[in-house]
Amino acid sequence: MLIKVISSIVIIISFTLIGGIHANTYSNRTKLLSQLLISLQMLETEISYSATPLPILLSNIGKKSKEDIGSIFLKASEILSKKEGYTFSYLWSMILDSEGMALDLYPEDLEIFKQLGNNLGATDINNQIKHIRLIMEELRRNHEDAIIAEKRNVKLYKQLGLLAGFAIAIVLF
């Protein structure tokens, strides 16, 4: 009898946590998008005020950003400084394909972020700044969508997890 009670409590708690984990992907996406916007703002400021070359620029931004987004910039700067002869846009899409999959961003967000690779280090300062601002605008739109989706979904998945736990516990016992 006691074992039944304990195991049903364990089942309920674990299903609630599963629902919470799935809900986390939504709130992670919102956080990642806002970090991304902050990093892009820093990038724009650094490009317009100092003429640092690309590897150093990327590693500065990477160190100043929070961990998830910063690691992408740091990795790009590291591979660039090895001077293995990659073009920046090829390198950028390669890094985003490998690292970006582990993050909770949607494919649309990654596509927009990849556009950055086509323009950095390619044209003069004003054009680069314009491109960065364009990318920031598009990401801002996605960020607002992400906030709406988060509000709608996080509570839903937590409640679903709890109810599913109850249902399974009752059916089994």
């Binding site: 839903l156 679903l160 109810l163 109850f166 249902a167």
Partner: peptide, 12 residues
């Protein structure tokens, strides 16, 4: 109990 849970799930 299953009936109650199904109706709550339906509402949610």
């Amino acid at each position: 109990a299953i009936g109650i849970i199904v109706s709550v799930l339906n509402m949610v």
